[in-house]
Simulated assay, not measured.
Amino acid sequence: MTGHRRRFDQLAWPEIQERAHGDGSTLIWPFGACEQHGPHLPLVTDALFAERIAEAVLAELNPELPIWRLPTQVIGFSPEHQSFPGTLSLSSDLLIALVVQLGEQLAGMGWRRLVLFNAHGGQIALLQVAARELRQRCPAMAVLPCFLWSGVEGLADLLPADELENGLHAGLAETSLMLHQAPELVGDQRPKDGLPGVDGCPVPPSGWSLEGAAPSAWLMQDLSRSGVIGDSGAASAELGQALEQRLVVHWTARFQALLTSDWPAVEKAADRTSAS
């Protein structure tokens, strides 16, 4: 069960019926965005990363494990980038409704788990809200919202501390990963922009930051003329390959653990809810 046989949309309906009702049946739904990524990266950056890492992970997993991939959601929630041409954004209500409505249909087919595999940092919290709303409506299906870069071991060995903390968009990591995965889509510029205290970029007060424990609802035009937050100057395909390896190893282990367990025990939770 390799290649297209992992693709939900390339199966026939009897195959869907059989797989959905199998033990631990799981779908991974890649999420990205269609938004500016500086003058050197394509609008599809986040969606491309989500899809290609998901594909690489599926190729590493035992083909007998019950997991399939939905088509990638390419347009997401990106209002912070709409001052730059090319950015397309769904409203928050529309994205939540999309997840809930399609999720309800998938639950109705019998799927046991739905993993929202997201590579756009601007919709992490929104997809968590959508997941909770969907789970409330479909208590027999587990919903797991994930962020591509979250919790990945070994990134600090590859990226400088400043870039790990402040390289939020189209900086060293994303430029390098794109140089490895799709170099034909990368332009020649290597911007350094949007960093606190650099070229007039505002410095947050002590204890506050763009993202983290005390974040701010920033808009890109507040911080950057180029649409970049970070320093892409040292980006390379070699670094991108190393980053991809870390991502694939991390998520392969996470999905292996999930697919060989009965967690989350949603059926027992649903039974308790019905009994009460």
Rank of each mutant, 00 (worst) to 15 (best):
A265E: 07
T2Q: 01
T273W: 04
D199M: 03
F77K: 12
R113C: 03
H4V: 15
L168N: 04
V99E: 00
L179P: 04
Q181R: 13
P204E: 12
A142T: 13
A119W: 03
E267Y: 10
T87W: 06
V203D: 11
P39A: 03
E80S: 12
I124Y: 09
R132P: 08
E60N: 14
W68A: 09
A54E: 10
L126I: 02
P42L: 00
Q101C: 04
R246D: 06
L106W: 07
L247W: 10
D231T: 05
L134R: 12
F117W: 05
G194R: 02
E184P: 07
R135H: 14
V249S: 05
D193E: 11
T2C: 02
I124G: 12
L126N: 06
A119P: 08
G171F: 11
P63C: 02
L134E: 02
E35K: 08
T260N: 10
T26N: 08
T175P: 00
A56W: 11
R190F: 00
H40D: 06
L102T: 15
P202F: 05
L210K: 01
G194D: 00
L106V: 09
C201K: 02
E104C: 03
D262L: 05
W29H: 08
E60D: 15
S236K: 06
R5T: 03
G122I: 03
L95K: 07
E133L: 01
L259M: 07
D193R: 04
V74H: 12
R137T: 03
E165D: 13
Q82E: 03
S92V: 01
L172C: 10
N62D: 08
R254Q: 15
A33C: 15
A54W: 14
P183E: 09
L159C: 09
A217Y: 13
A234Y: 11
A257F: 08
L43Q: 11
V44M: 10
V57A: 12
G200A: 02
V152G: 07
S224T: 07
T273G: 00
A20Y: 04
G38E: 10
W111K: 00
C138M: 07
A142M: 06
L102V: 12
A217V: 13
Q256V: 00
S83A: 05
L98C: 07
L159G: 03
G76N: 09
V249R: 13
G151L: 11
P30Q: 09
Q17E: 13
D199E: 15
V129D: 02
P204M: 04
L61H: 11
R7V: 04
G121P: 10
P71N: 06
T252C: 00
P191L: 04
G86E: 06
A217D: 14
W29K: 06
C34R: 11
E64Y: 03
